[in-house]
Amino acid sequence: MKLNVGAVCGPGGSKKNKTGHWRSFRPKVDPEACNGCGICFMYCPDASIKIVDKICIIDYEYCKGCGICAHECPRDAITMEEERK
């Protein structure tokens, strides 16, 4: 791709940068315990959580495994497991 004038670039290109491989711990959701309250969705710094049908779904393409979701979950529905590479 040719470089653009003045280093001006389009929006949202960072989506090409899959940060999931940074992870050393992986959040695992217990669908029984999760009620889809959305607290984890709200706090996620990497926009890697969606609530679908009242269950939180983690986007492992971008999730860096920070663990905020697991720590903040009021129902302890998320646990951090060591990432197997």
Partner: peptide, 24 residues
């Protein structure tokens, strides 16, 4: 809270970054 993500993932903030969560 709107679902539309205007602060896209794939940025290079450290894991657990406060400012990234705030910008979003």
């Amino acid at each position: 809270i709107p679902e539309q993500e205007l602060f896209a993932p794939g940025h290079n903030a450290c894991a657990g970054c406060g400012p990234a969560a705030i910008a979003r």
